[in-house]
Amino acid sequence: MTETNPAGFEIRDYLRLDLMPHFMCPGCGHGIALRALLWAVHELGIEKDELAIVSGIGCSGRVGGYIDANTYHVTHGRPLAFATGLKLARPDLKVIVITGDGDCLAIGGNHLIHACRRNLDLTCLMLNNEVYGMTGGQVSPTTAETRLTTTTPAGNTEPAFDACQLAEAAGAGLVGREVTMQTPALRNLIKQGLEYPGFSFLEVISDCTEIYGRKNDLGESAEMVLSQKSDMRPEAYGNVADQPFRPNRLLTGVLARNERPEYGETYRRHADGVANGGKAGA
């Protein structure tokens, strides 16, 4: 009971009410992800002034703008780069990056691997809806094979990325995945990410109902949300040969931990050394 009770969590307290209702389509999973994020922020007692949200371009990029805190809406694919600079300059801030599958893995793929490599204390929330929704529904790096998009009218032929495996291999300190349907579990995962002293990469499986769902006949919003549940069942995973490839969608929770030094710490130590006339790395 206490576990799932928001205990005084009023989402309105964290929203820019003058911008509401938000611009996202009916049934878009990004709204649920935003709730989970704000719920986690509330439960950790993070002050709005200490909170900085950096987001890129795309539907996911717009999510950050509704949060009543310090928010940055930056260039396509670069939220991690901006966030890295911000966190190094202002280590006192809690910096959260909200990005999407296209923003993070395609346009910003390079920044992602290097952010993972550095292991700077950031929390990266990648909202994965398998498509470029804002620009009209083009194929993205996580679009499952055979899926229809405006740029793959006969079905996608490219294999999809498993973003979590990528982040783990690149050295992210904490890697996790959750679906929007499990809102309290998603909140818990985000809390873990926020508390982790290093780079946490969290993939959120979200639904694009209006564009991707409709194009692929995945049902209405409610059916898409429910299918997240059946996708997590092992038996639904069973016969891969008969189903479009969905890279490990079913594994949720914390998937990997890499115990590595936090970069901000290292950076400040070396910077102090240089300022005192020494050499970096000394």
Binding site: N5, P6, I11, L15, P21, M24, G27, G31, I32, T183
Partner: peptide, 20 residues
């Protein structure tokens, strides 16, 4: 149960447990 509150992507429903 709050399920509607959690899953509404538009925050249109808030469930209150008044005398909790």
């Amino acid at each position: 149960c709050r399920i509607c509150e959690w899953l509404c992507p538009d925050f249109a429903i808030a469930v209150h447990h008044d005398n909790l």
